[in-house]
Structure formats: C-alpha cells, structure tokens
Write a protein that binds this DNA or RNA. Structure first.
Length: 904
RNA sequence: GGGCGAUUGGCUCAGCGGUAGAGCGCUGCCUUCACACGGCAGAGGUCACUGGUUCGAUCCCAGUAUCGCCCACCA
C-alpha cells in the first residue's frame, strides 16, 4: 500500500512518472551536449580546457528494436558517460543508426511481396525511394526506446550511415583506398546467398554442423579397355584406385560433378603417381578430365583424390588457377542447375540426390555413401545454405590495413578489456582474407566507379569518382552497393565530420572507449581499426586509432545460462521489464551482472531485487528528509559521534572502491560495493543508530546527525547516479533543492577512521549476539526486556549504551529485576530479566554447538602453531593471524563455558 | 579440425596459496513510528574428478570428464 506522507514523498518509488519527467528535463537543459555541460565546477581543472570523453554508440540497425543485449551495452555506456560528466569531462555520447543493407532490403521486399510485387517491379530508383519511406515511417524505433533506458546521448549529433555527410565519407574512403591500390575488382569465388541474390563476406557466413552424405564416386570407366587411367589400375594399389579401375573421389556436393574439370591427387601420393597426367571419364557427361597433382590435397582424407570444380569451390578454383583448368559454371544465381542435360532446371538440393541416383544406375560407379556431419556455411541474414560462386566482385586488400590494426593493439595504443581478447584479435587480423565489399543489392552506398567506352586495350575504361567529381557524360555507374560494414567501419570518425577537418573531429577523436559485446569484436571493431588508422594516418600514431580502449562485455543468457534466442522463446524484452520494474532496476541488474569477459544470466527475480533496492534508497531518503536532513559540505561535519565517524569512514572506502572499479570497467564490483554500503551499512545500521540522537531531545546531537545523514546520502546518491540515473536524480534534488545531480561533482571524500570502525564492529558483534539470544528464546522483536549491561563502564562501548539498548529493545532494570539469563559479549555481561521464562534447553543447545565450534577452531589453530614446518616457512603475518585466531577461539571457549555454567 | 573459457551452497555467479562469499530461493519470528519492494535470526557447500608442487591448494601445474564460445576453404 502506498501512503502519502507529510514530506511529500509516497512510501513507494513509482518510476514511470519520474523517468519521463527527468529525461525531458535533462534533454531540455542540454546536459547531453558537451557545449552545455558548464565545465567550471572542478577547481583542479580551472584554467585548463576540460578533457574530452567520447563514446560513439555502436549504431543499431535501422530495422532493429531494443533487445536485452542493447540494454546492457547502453547501460554501461551511459554509466561511463554520466560518470565522466560528473568528473568534469566534456562528454559526448554520439548516437545513430546503421542502414543495414541486406536486413533492411529484406524487410521492405517482404512488405512488397504482400502486395504481390518484387523490387524489380518497382525498379531501382523507386525501390530505394520506398526504403527511405519505410525508414521514415517505421525505422529507428530503437531511438525512442533508448530514451526509456535513460541514455544520455547527444541527440543533436545523431547520424545515419546513409545520410549525406556519411555518404561523402564513404565515397572519400573508397576513392582513397582505390587510388592507393587497396581496392580491386576480380573474378573470384565468393560466398553467394541464392535467396538474397548477393555476395556475402566471410563474416556474414555462419558455419553450422549439418548432416550430409559423403558420396564415393568412381571416375573413369573400366568397362571398356582403352586409353586413360583405366588400363593401368586394378593392380592392388588400394581400394581407392583399386579393383574396377578409374579413380574414386569423395564429395558432399555430388551435383557439382557436372562442373568438374579435373581430379587432383597429392604429388607425393604413390597410390596415384602413375595416374597423374592421364585422363579419366567423368560419369554422366562423357567428358574426359585430367588427373593433376596438387599439394593442397590431403592424402589422408577420403580416398586422397579430389574432384576439382573450379567454378563452384574456392579451393578448386585455386587448384584450377595453378593448373590452368577451365572453369565450368553449372549453376545460376538461384542455385539452379544450368548444365544442359537431364538435370537442367533442378534446384541444387534436388539435383544432388537425382545425380546420385543416376550414377547408381551403373552399379560400379557409386562405391559408397556414408552419413557425414560437416560444417556448412549459412547466410547470416536468412539462413540459406551459402553457395560458393564464381563472380566479378570488388575487394579490399586487407593485409597492410589489418596489420596496422593489429599493431595498434600490440603497441598499446588501443587496449582491449579484458586482455584475454588480444589473442583472438590477433588471430583474426593476422590471417584475414581479402574482404569482398560489393553487394548485389539496391539499398546501400553505390560503388563510386563508372565505366566508359572501351579503351585502347579493348576493355571498358574505368574511373573511380570522388565526392566532388563528376562522372564523364555517358558513362555508367557500377550497379552494386557496398557492404554495410564498409560504412560502419568509418563510424568513429565519419560521425564527427570526416573527411572535413571539423572541430568535433579535432576534439572528440580518438574516441575514449568503445563498448560492445565480444561477439562482434571481429565483425566491426577490427574494421574500424583498419579504417581509422588508415584514414587518420596523417596524425601521430597514438592519435590515429579510433578508440583508446575497447570494452568487450559478455552475452546475456536466460536464468538457466542458455543463450537467448527467439526460437527458444527465452528472450527477455527490456522494455517490458522497464514498464514493470523501472529503468533504474533494469540498469542496476545489468550493470551488477557485468563482469569483465563473463557472460551473465538474467532472471526477472533479480530485476525485482533491484527494484527493491531503488525503493530502499527511496525510503532511506524519505526517512532522512522526514527528520530534517539537508545536504551539507564536508567542512560542516563537526561534533561527530563514533557512529558518525564510522559511516563516514565506510563512505570513504566505498567512494574509493567505486571509483577504482569503474576505472577498470568492473561494473559488477562497483554495484556490489554500493549495494552493500547503502543497504547493509547505511540503512540497516546507521539509520537505526541515528534514531537515538534524533529522538533524544538533545538538539545539538540531532542537528549533527541530520548533517551526517544529509552528507552521506548526498554522496551516496552521486555514486549511484551513473548506474541508476532516475531515482538518484529525483532523490538528490529533493535533498538538495538543486535542478539535477547530472553535473554534480563526483565524490572524492576520504575520512578513514580505523578506530571508529573497530568500535562499531564491536558494537555490532554484541548486538548480533544478543539478538540471536532473543531469537532463540522466542522473544518478539518488539518486546521490551529489562536488562543490565554489567561492566560496560570503562569499555569502548560505554558511550553506546543507549544505542545498544535501543537496537536491542532493552529497558532499564526496575524494582524486582532478577537476572534470568546473562551473556558475556565483548567484555560486557548482558544480564536479562525474562521473568523466569528463559528456555534453558534451547540456550544450552545453542551454547553447546557454539562451544564445540570454538573448541574445534582452537584445536585446529593450535595444531597449526605446533607444526614446525609451518612455523618455519609460513610468513610472519600468517602466523600472527593464526595466533590471534587461537586466542579468540580460546576466549570464546572460556566465555561459552561460563555461560553454560550459569545455566545451571 | 584449431583456439579460448568454464565447472564453488537449490538457482545464477563473485572470490582466492593460509578460517568458503553475494543475490535470489529456503526455514523461524515480527505489521518495532523510512521501507512487508521491509526487519531480525537461521539452515545450506568434501569449491567436477585424478595425480603433482607446497608447511598448507577451491586457488598453481598435468591429465580426465562435462559444458560453452570463437575461429575454420579437408572435398
């Protein structure tokens, strides 16, 4: 039940209204823009320009909506941005979106299909126009969702990979690479998606284990004697080339045999040495093809003989080049057989069994068919099995670019977190294939190359056209567009105005940190580093890299540790969680689970737990306000009690810890530290202790406590703000009367007090001990019990007698007080009058259990101290600690024995 | 096929060469005047297995098992 209290704050935090109002206020005030952040509050930085802190948002697909992976990504980025803003950095978090070539085109094509149209019915220009219309209407849903999360991005600098400035950047980059000979066009085997009808780069292909068949086929015919291989075989050279003659090859893609133009064996393979240079007959076709020797062949695999299909397999293509074999294309772009004959017009997956069946008509040809599980490439976008296809495409020559990217990490100009990712990164950049960048799509950046009339060499003239150049009249532009990742690779600098020498580029590049899941380290990070170091090569090397740090966080799994996927139905919608628990709760849960390098699981229960934490903060602040707390500066903290000095000492520790953890991207540890400080130390102990002076009637003591309450709360809310922006802003403003905590200076408070910590630790041990007794005795928590704290005078706990009595609900001894139980704790004998109702058996059981534990501990530690090897080799501090443990255990033993004795 | 990581209470995870931690869940008591989205107390683990190094191993090393991820042009 929510009741409205006199202080104006209801007893439960209601996130929805606060979130909407606060976000609007922040945006309106311009806090997200570095220009409006007013960097004058930090004395340390006066006179000097505030340092810049930059994050570019990994641009989500224009087709996308916010999933829980984004929510984690964004929470970490926003926490970093907010933290740096509070520390006085000119902070820019730049948002934007990716045009997502294939994904977007597919979406719009599906929409067209509902109208019975294909993109070809519209034509290129109208189709692209239609995609833009789709974008205007439905695209970018994710941007609105980011506001719900509280993302403090600078909306005035939002960019899109297809907007005019970025398109110029793309064209400029292409032209520079082209002029430097780093872009070329070639006829090569590329990954082809027969459904999307476009080339794909290696990273757009996912390898999955599929069940297939390995078919052993005998090439060459020994039913007739005569030329070729047949007449020399059958001489016991093994099963491969054995009885029956010819040569047996193994294949998983039987249909490609129609395009075979050779059989290859290893040059050192003695089984086949006599066949090299001969020809065999290719079944079903009547063609004779040569047997060649090539070192690529693995003699151990299959029969050691490989069919060679240069037009349909990348390895075979290379073999074909080395041996000058013809390329025979037998399939069209849809994966339909085009080779004349009975299989023409069949889809590749229909042709495969059909061809095996046809081969089987002659019982001697198919030697064996065995089930075979092997990795097959699938289109990243639609899942269709990728077909290697020979075609004319554009490529980036990556060797030098990739090396530069690798060097940036090797030199420490860019640091990966966690560093375990270095090995993966190097493995990738050091062995990268040339990047196929042309796509047979309509949605994307058109390749800026134009073709004219034939030149002197009989080939059409080619010209790469820069952004400020005109193509010669009458020439035609290349029909293809660029891979989406080409433009995203420019993101850290194209968004800041490159290639123009803008002020933003000067100030905010290199960006400070890139935050992303480790799954796209290679997709995207490596490319940005290749392009960034190249585009900025006129800068000093350490200023050329696109980011100084890369934070790679784990993936989010469900509560059972399983990867989330739509097909499993175990996805979590972050917006629904925000609706139910509030954005701060979702953010805190994600940040708390974010351990460097580790994946995290997400369950609703934890979000509920974080929601409870928000509410705890809410009520702690409400309590403080109801008691007249206001924020003060640390200089106003005077007349401090031990409890005050204790909480201030703990605040000092958590301030240092949180700052350090954030600096190391250890969000989980920072959140844990704050959670325990706020809940266990501040709420459960300090607020309870504070009730004594607040209610004491001693106005000086109450005023001092109000100041400490206000100060600690003020600092604590600031420390929490990067991760929980909404609730902290609302509460901090209620406490201080300021407009927003967003630009409040980050706490640097340090007032450690070991003596106070020791004193309060002693108090807590005593209180806990007596509470346990009370619980064991079945006393209701609220029940007042007469008690005497015998012997407290002169101990460090003496000043706390009133607090102890308050925490334990102990009343002063009155007439007729009779000790029915006494517990020795912390040098104090707590004598309690239970009016004779003490449960002796329960107490005896408890004491005997504790006594057994204490004796065991004493025996163990004493044994250790009697061990010569231990005493000789263990370090002094360990021995000292062990001695202390023994002393404690012995003291406990004595104490417990005496308590047992008093039970009678 | 290659590389990397994981294996700790019911669940999800921290931790770390020297007395096992958290959150949630669980048990008992309690509407004590900030909060039942709460308070207090409590139960629960031979830190995957087998060896090794060490005075001492959950932690270091080797091997085994299981799981996960990334990379991959052996047909």
């Amino acid at each position: 039940m929510t009741t409205r209290e006199p202080d104006g704050l209801p007893s439960q935090y209601a996130p929805a209204e606060v979130e909407t109002r606060r976000y609007e206020q922040w945006e309106k005030a311009g806090y997200f823009q570095p220009e409006a952040q007013g960097h004058s509050q930090s004395e340390a930085q006066q006179g000097a320009a505030a340092p810049a802190f930059t994050i570019v948002l990994p641009p989500p697909n224009v087709t996308g909506s916010l999933h829980v992976g984004h929510a984690l990504d964004h929470t970490l980025m926003d926490a970093l941005a907010r933290w740096h803003r509070m520390r006085g950095f000119r902070t820019l978090w730049l948002p934007g979106m990716d045009h997502a070539g294939i994904a977007t085109q597919n979406v719009v094509e599906r929409e067209l299909a509902k109208e019975g149209l294909s993109r070809h019915d519209l034509g290129r220009e109208a189709f692209v126009e239609r995609v833009w219309r789709w974008k205007a209407e439905y695209g970018g849903k994710i941007l609105g969702q980011m506001r719900r999360l509280g993302d403090s991005v600078d909306w005035t600098r939002e960019r899109f990979t297809m907007d005019e400035g970025l398109s110029r950047a793309v064209q400029t980059m292409f032209k520079r690479l082209y002029d430097d000979g780093l872009i070329y066009r070639d006829n090569r085997i590329i990954n082809w998606c027969p459904r999307c009808l476009t080339a794909l780069s290696d990273i757009e292909v996912n390898h999955e284990d599929d069940e297939g068949e390995l078919v052993y086929i005998r090439y060459g015919d020994n039913s007739k004697t005569g030329d070729g291989a047949g007449d020399r075989t059958g001489d016991g050279t093994g099963t491969a080339a054995g009885a029956g003659g010819g040569i047996v090859v193994a294949t998983t893609r039987a249909e490609t045999m129609l395009g075979d133009t050779a059989v290859a064996v290893h040059p050192d393979d003695e089984r086949y040495a006599h066949l090299v240079g001969k020809t065999v007959e290719l079944p079903l076709t009547g063609r004779r093809i040569p047997i060649v020797a090539d070192a690529h062949v693995d003699p151990e695999f299959g029969t050691g003989a490989v069919k060679v299909t240069p037009a349909h397999d990348p390895n075979d293509f290379e073999i074909g080049r080395r041996h000058d074999l013809p390329t025979l294309t037998i399939m069209d772009e849809h994966g339909v057989i085009t080779a004349p004959g009975p299989f023409e017009g069949l889809d590749r997956f229909e042709a495969r069994p059909a061809i095996v069946a046809a081969l089987r008509e002659d019982g001697r040809i198919v030697k064996e068919v065995r089930p075979y599980v092997h990795a097959v490439g699938h289109c990243d976008r639609c899942g269709t099995v990728v077909e290697p296809r020979l075609s004319l495409q554009w490529f980036v020559r990556v060797a030098t670019l990739a090396k530069a990217a690798g060097d940036a990490v090797r030199d420490g100009r860019t640091v990966l977190y966690p560093s375990e990712m270095n090995a993966r990164f190097f493995g990738w950049v050091d062995d990268m294939h040339d990047w196929c960048i042309s796509r047979q799509l309509w949605w994307g950046h058109r390749i800026p190359v134009w073709y004219g009339p034939d030149g002197p060499d009989g080939q059409p003239q080619v010209r790469c056209v820069g952004p400020d150049e005109e193509a010669p009249a009458g020439w035609t532009q290349d029909a293809d567009v660029l891979d989406t990742w080409f433009s995203s690779g420019l993101w850290p600098f194209s968004t800041l105005g490159w290639p123009e020498p803008t002020a933003d580029l000067r100030e905010f590049y290199p960006t400070s940190v890139l935050v992303t899941g480790y799954d796209i380290l290679f997709f995207w990070v490596a490319r940005m580093m290749m392009f960034g170091t190249y585009a900025m090569k006129d800068r000093a090397p350490q200023e050329a890299v696109p980011f100084r740090k890369v934070l790679l966080h784990g993936l989010i799994r469900d509560q059972f540790g399983k990867k989330m996927s739509k097909s499993k139905g175990n996805t979590v919608d972050p917006l629904e969680l925000i609706d139910r628990f509030g954005a701060d709760a979702v953010r805190f849960t994600l940040a708390r689970g974010a351990n460097l390098g580790g994946d995290m699981s997400l369950a609703e229960d934890w979000v509920a737990g974080s929601r409870n934490f928000c509410n705890k903060l809410w009520n702690a602040t409400r309590f403080a306000l109801m008691n007249g707390a206001t924020s003060v500066r640390s200089g106003e903290l005077t007349e401090l009690t031990a409890a005050d000095r204790w909480i201030l000492s703990r605040l000092s520790a958590v301030t240092g810890d949180v700052t350090r953890w954030l600096d190391e991207f250890e969000f989980g540890k920072a959140c844990d530290a704050l959670y325990h400080f706020a809940w266990d130390e501040f709420c459960d102990w300090y607020l309870e202790l504070a009730k004594v002076p607040l209610a004491s009637g001693d106005e000086a003591a109450a005023a001092s406590t109000r100041r400490v309450l206000g100060f600690v709360l003020d600092q604590m809310l600031k420390l929490l703000h990067p991760v929980m922006p909404f609730v902290t802003d609302e509460l901090w403003c209620a406490l201080t009367g300021e407009d927003s905590v967003m630009l409040a200076p980050w706490p640097e408070f340090a007032l450690p007090d070991p003596a106070a910590e020791a004193e309060l630790a002693s108090l807590m041990r005593l209180v806990t001990e007596v509470r346990r007794f009370r619980s064991d005795q079945g006393l209701r928590p609220g029940q007042r019990v007469p008690a005497r704290l015998a012997g407290i005078e002169g101990t460090p706990l003496a000043p706390h007698e009133e607090s102890i009595r308050s925490l334990l609900r102990l009343t002063a001894p009155e007439d007729g007080f009779a000790v029915s139980a006494s517990l020795a704790a912390e040098e104090v004998m707590v004598e309690i009058d239970l009016a004779g109702t003490v449960d002796v058996e329960a107490e005896r059981k408890r004491l005997e259990k504790d006594l057994a534990a204490a004796r065991k501990e004493a025996a163990q530690t004493s044994g250790k101290l009697g061990n010569e090897s231990f005493m000789a080799k263990a370090p002094a501090d360990v021995i000292a600690k062990t001695r202390q443990r023994l002393a404690d255990a012995e003291a406990d033993t004595v104490r417990l024995e005496s308590r047992l004795a008093t039970l009678g």
